Amino acid sequence: MKCEEQTPKDPIDLLPPATQIGENTFGCLVDGESFTPDGSPNSFSGSYNFHDGGYDLIVGGGNSQKDEISGVSVGTESLSINTGEKYSLFTRTSGNAYGSVYRSSNTSYTSSEYSGELFISKHDPENRIISGTFWYDIKDAFGDVHEIREGRFDIKY
């Protein structure tokens, strides 16, 4: 059998499965191409901590092998999350959820003009598991607009 027949043709097939068991996975499509952490030290982050009177969620991945976008993340700032809730991704300010991309040493965040949605499919504080999905549009520091789609994560914090 040829190797190319075993390689998924659809970029979404290269993303981690959408689990809810604390697998510490992260992935999405960036402008139609699969994006996952590259496995190098610090290429994945997933935490949910109490800070300055509220909870901050941060889930993201880095991939130094990608040409343009080398980091993608979603998070909340001083905003508690709940299973089954949807959160609009706007600016990175207290009480909001947001998305970000990292490109050429510049971090850009979602805004009122370029936004999206974060859905928490599971938050189990007892077992410290958070799983969810996300999508957003974002304008980077160079003026390019990117589509982040089919995002998924499953963390044990």
Results as ranks from 00 to 15, higher is better:
30 V>Q: 07
153 F>Y: 07
111 S>A: 10
102 Y>W: 15
21 I>Y: 05
126 E>K: 14
50 F>E: 09
26 F>G: 12
136 Y>R: 02
117 E>D: 13
32 G>L: 01
23 E>I: 02
44 F>I: 03
57 L>I: 01
3 C>F: 12
95 G>P: 02
117 E>Y: 04
72 V>K: 05
52 D>T: 00
22 G>N: 09
126 E>W: 04
149 R>Q: 14
45 S>T: 10
1 M>Q: 09
68 E>R: 03
87 Y>E: 01
67 D>A: 15
96 N>E: 15
98 Y>L: 03
71 G>R: 04
82 N>R: 13
132 G>D: 00
122 K>H: 08
115 S>W: 07
129 I>H: 09
151 G>K: 05
6 Q>L: 13
47 S>Q: 08
99 G>P: 04
132 G>H: 07
155 I>G: 05
95 G>Q: 04
101 V>E: 05
19 T>R: 06
62 G>I: 06
119 F>K: 10
107 T>A: 12
34 S>F: 13
24 N>V: 01
102 Y>R: 06
118 L>K: 04
70 S>E: 11
34 S>K: 12
67 D>Y: 10
146 H>K: 07
118 L>F: 02
45 S>I: 14
75 G>A: 05
6 Q>T: 00
104 S>N: 15
62 G>R: 14
106 N>T: 10
95 G>H: 00
154 D>L: 05
46 G>W: 11
31 D>M: 03
139 K>G: 00
143 G>V: 10
131 S>F: 04
10 D>S: 11
40 S>Q: 12
11 P>F: 07
136 Y>F: 15
103 R>Y: 14
87 Y>I: 06
154 D>E: 13
23 E>M: 06
36 T>A: 02
55 Y>G: 11
149 R>L: 14
97 A>T: 05
144 D>V: 08
74 V>C: 07
143 G>Q: 03
154 D>P: 07
80 S>G: 15
94 S>G: 07
3 C>I: 13
124 D>C: 01
151 G>L: 12
32 G>R: 10
157 Y>Q: 02
66 K>R: 12
150 E>L: 10
13 D>F: 13
11 P>V: 03
96 N>Q: 15
54 G>S: 11
17 P>K: 08
144 D>C: 00
16 P>A: 09
73 S>W: 03
96 N>I: 05
108 S>M: 05
83 T>E: 14
103 R>K: 15
42 N>Y: 06
40 S>M: 12
38 D>C: 15
128 R>L: 02
110 T>L: 08
130 I>Q: 12
18 A>H: 06
47 S>N: 09
14 L>C: 14
121 S>W: 04
68 E>I: 04
61 G>R: 13
13 D>C: 13
19 T>Y: 02
93 T>K: 07
139 K>C: 04
142 F>R: 03
142 F>D: 11
120 I>H: 06
61 G>S: 13
74 V>I: 10
85 E>D: 01
154 D>R: 06
153 F>N: 11
93 T>C: 08
157 Y>N: 05
53 G>E: 03
93 T>H: 02
